[in-house]
Design a protein around this nucleic acid. Structure first.
Lengths: 348, 348
DNA sequence: CTGAAAGCGCTAACAA
DNA sequence: TTGTTAGCGCTTTCAG
């Protein structure tokens, strides 16, 4: 469509027989400006439907007042909630937010991070894709001194600000809860080993077993493939059953996997939680809808978003490089899927 | 953090003793440029970690190669899927995408639409908030000739390109399906009357009843309040039951409402679908997880995103204003929640 | 209180 | 094949 001639600061300056600077100042309502001229400018701006050109502003100020966000997937309730938290605080502080998804693809992540860099965001908040095992595209940010904050999924080899959940503790608590409920043969459906969170959760799982004198059984550590989706859980669960492995409880690396596991168990007429108890991680809304309701670890997603912005702003406003690491804890929300009806006396 | 001196086109021009234009051209690999100089430029660019400044590019080209998107909420699977469709095609066509959420707030919608306008997006794709009943903030786009496409939720008073679902037909089919299953006393849990989609779905509901000789009963048209969330469905369903109204089927304006209805029915020990059948609209993934699985109308969300971009691009590339309206149909996906075990012979 | 002028980094005629 | 030059729209010293 043909370009429409936008009215600029110059147009209104000419019409008023003043200079560009005066108009600029009037618009920003600078103190030292005549009340009369200010009014005249504002009126004309309204009349001509003037809208400031942010591009020009950014170029001259060398700041876009924009923060970039890269998440693996928008369709996860967890991530979209984090984003809401980010937007809330960012807007309050006068920043715009550009959201991008990597679609869990390393390649796409590299592309969007470069685009964002070229778009001169004032800072970047990211949770890496599950494929990512190279951080060169983020190192460029560091070289150029553009503030960086990771949340949830971080690059292990980068020393930057981050806000993460205590995955280890969360996993530990979940498994201990299962043990307290009388479960002894507890399987863990693990996430992709690429992700630090997967590793931490495995560690928590193992240590909880250890503490309660339950030997770790390799067959009960189940790989769900590269995905974190419901389907992966279903398939892995069926494979486990087919292999004749029959735990009395399952701790899943995330809710979608847990849901997949549950549907498979139900299909196999296995009673939850009596025969097999299940605990997930994330607390997606779906957890309350499935039957029985799924016990899960609640992550304070909105808060994570806000803190990410806070750490980013701290860097933006700091004269020197800054690295802060926040660790939040996930709260175990116990629902029916892990509540054995039989109460066991177990030594603790 | 202190600003880092970016290397610009000028820096590398000086070092090579050539002009800015030459460097610019080399970078864009313009045809008429010496192979030697081109290589020299590219090498130096790499060495200095040069990244083009998109802001400057946009200012001089008067085009940002960016399209803006405004959705009510990112946390709805439907919207995040539409966005994936948008991004897919947009990237393929060399466009960036800026995503914003209105958070279902009219006020927020106005703000982000202005920000996007100031950020000089080349076009805007939007699905309005449920509060929005004024379209002045979009009229500005029209005045300034910046292409606009609405999807799903459109402004009734604006003549612009749009891609929508045939809500009327979808609703009609859902209700007819219920009737074919022997249901006669069918309630509709309706959406906010502000939204055209609510109205269309009500119309489809009524006409299906009409066609099958079932009189419309006002008491069975149930208002869910201003929300479209699970909770609203639960509350409205309980209120209905408390009022002694007992339909034999329910068609809900969207899946979250349907889910809320189902949980309330189950709490009241009402059998689904035998006592009350349920059909939703949207097909959120949650529909397959609840018990019994929820029948629903599947919207081709990804496709809607792609088509939105297509219509937008058509406008961007058209010398004259263009208005295209696409209507897609929603497919009824029948699951257990609406399958009465008793087969009735009904006159059709 | 207001103006002049330089500059942000890049593109694109028009020349050479 | 390359250089010169004039912008794009706005901010911001420095003068007046």
């Amino acid at each position: 469509m043909k370009k429409y001639k936008e009215t600029t600061i110059l147009d209104i300056a000419r019409e008023l027989n003043v200079s560009k600077s005066t108009v600029s100042r009037a618009l920003k309502n600078h103190h030292s400006i005549g009340a009369a001229t200010k009014k005249a400018v504002l009126d004309l701006a309204k009349k001509y439907n003037y809208h400031p050109n942010n591009i020009a502003y950014s170029l001259s100020k060398k700041s876009t007042k924009t923060i970039g966000v890269i998440v693996p997937l928008l369709s996860h309730y967890y991530f979209s909630t984090v984003i809401s938290g980010i937007e809330e605080l960012a807007y309050k502080e006068g920043y715009k937010v550009i959201i991008c998804q990597s679609a869990e693809s390393y390649e796409r992540e590299v592309i969007v991070s470069q685009t964002l860099l070229s778009s001169k965001v004032d800072g970047l908040i990211v949770s890496i894709s599950r494929e990512t095992n190279n951080s060169d595209h983020f190192k460029v940010y560091q070289q150029k001194n553009v503030p960086l904050v990771f949340f949830d999924r971080v690059c292990p080899d980068l020393d930057v600000s981050s806000v993460v959940i205590d995955d280890y503790q969360g996993a530990f608590n979940a498994v201990e809860h299962l043990i307290m409920g009388g479960k002894r043969k507890i399987a863990h459906f693990a996430g992709p080993p690429m992700l630090k969170i997967s590793l931490e959760r495995i560690k928590g799982y193992k240590d909880a077993l250890l503490k309660h004198g339950i030997p770790f059984d390799e067959n009960l550590l189940i790989d769900c493939g590269s995905g974190l989706e419901q389907e992966n859980g279903s398939i892995a669960a069926q494979a486990m059953l087919d292999a004749g492995i029959r735990p009395d409880a399952i701790f899943a690396v995330c809710d979608p996997i847990a849901i997949g596991v549950m549907t498979t168990l139900k299909k196999n007429k296995i009673k939850i939680p009596d025969e097999i108890g299940v605990v997930g991680f994330c607390d997606e809304p779906i957890a309350t809808v499935i039957e029985p309701p799924l016990s899960s670890l609640v992550q304070p997603a909105f808060k994570i978003g806000e803190i990410s912005v806070e750490l980013l702003l701290n860097q933006i406003n700091s004269p020197i490089p800054l690295v802060e690491k926040k660790v939040l804890s996930a709260e175990l929300k116990i629902r029916e899927s892990s509540l054995s009806s039989v109460l066991n006396d177990n030594r603790i």
